[in-house]
Design a binder for these strands. Structure first.
Lengths: 220, 220
DNA sequence: TTTATGATTTAGGGTAGGCTAAAAATAAAA
DNA sequence: TTTTATTTTTAGCCTACCCTAAATCATAAA
């Protein structure tokens, strides 16, 4: 059984994201930028991750994540996202506050803790940013998502994510009555400026500029 | 502002417990036994804790915890016990499983996390073992507690702790419908065998032998 | 094809927290 | 009081993870 330290887990998670799920190769400098550590430190870490067979590492030529590496990265991502759900849904953190704390929480080493947390949260499939939560075995059930401004007139869906999760944008959404999970229907589209009128939860009608709608991901 | 690493926090917490709240002196070997690390490692740590003024350390003569040290230890204890409450009440861990996991959770560095957790749990005053949870400032409001079998007929209170927290005893309590936090009233006492009849949460009446009642602490 | 540039790795060092083995201080026994 | 036993500390080493400075490799430009 491969075991990773917290730092190794963090690196592997970053590498997974940089690999875009497993295709592209990744350079030392890429990882250095992502992790905010010096390239020299990265080289050393890549050697270690290579020895543990979670990446395939060729000196001077970058790396590719392995199948085993993907599996472990997804397990780390799962833990991170479950804690994010907990922080936002139960402890009322806002979306932009959770990342750092969830990172620390996700390094607590207890399998049963994560199982119970998952159960307690009602087996959520998406985190507060709308990103899918892998299951225990690393399987991700990614549902098709579309930008709100690209939906056809009359189509319905559910808000599952935002691209811009800045506090200002979140405050705006809150103000107009939109939120992750809201069921929406496109009531009207104005062609010349791209703005849309949306019915939220079959109750409230709101107007959105193209810029705003283009930051909202909807599951159709 | 004094900041401690996770390891230093662990040592200080152990020292606080060994000091019995702050009176007795503590030896290197005491700490070594409690922490399950070698005396040589302890010496080194004591020097560091001494430099940070959380203990008063005299080589070869042991240590005394300082006021500052007590305050920090109580903050660590607070975090630990709040997480224990969370694990038992929300994630359905049993009392004998929580210690290790709560230890790891309690090292997550976020003040607001602990505040929100406290709020979410309803500002609990006692952990699942019945030990009091210090407030933000390290104040412990230890309320008077009595053994259930010593209560007078008709008196009311709340179960706050058990002396025997063996799985068997916990299972028994669970079965009869008693739990930490339950509001109880003494409905009847049988003098010759010391058994009692208790009304739990104004709903359910249960019988207890003297032995069982003598293991339950009640806040009156 | 040689050189310059930029990316990457190596070498060596720092901190934190463990360890063992040996030295030193204290306490107990003769 | 001297010797022995116990406790505690020091010295030196190890792993993990980070750093800077210097060396090395790959590649794009001349």
């Amino acid at each position: 059984m491969i075991t990773l330290t917290s730092a190794e887990e963090n690196y592997l998670k970053a590498i997974y994201h940089l690999s875009d799920g497993g295709k592209k190769g990744v350079s030392t400098n890429d990882v250095s930028a992502e992790m905010k550590t010096k390239p020299a430190s990265v080289s050393d870490m890549l050697r270690k991750l290579g020895e543990k067979d979670v990446i395939e590492y060729r000196k001077y030529y970058g790396l590719h994540i392995t199948e085993e590496g993907k599996k472990l990265a997804l397990q780390t991502i799962r833990k991170h996202r479950l804690w994010e759900v907990f922080l936002v849904e139960k402890l009322k953190f806002s979306w932009d506050e959770v990342n750092e704390v969830a990172d620390e929480l996700s390094h607590v080493k207890s399998k049963v803790l994560i199982q119970r947390l998952d159960e307690y949260l009602g087996f959520p499939k998406f985190d507060p940013h709308g990103d899918p939560i892998p299951d225990e075995y690393g399987d991700v059930r990614a549902r098709p998502r579309q930008l709100l401004n690209e939906l056809d007139l009359g189509s319905t869906g559910q808000i599952v994510a935002v691209k811009d999760s800045s506090p200002a944008f979140l405050r705006y959404l809150d103000k107009v009555g939109a939120y992750i999970g809201a069921r929406i229907k496109v009531m009207d589209k104005t062609e010349f400026d791209g703005s849309v009128e949306i019915l939220v939860d079959n109750k409230k009608s709101i107007f959105m500029s193209k810029d705003v709608a283009g930051n909202i991901l909807v599951m159709v």
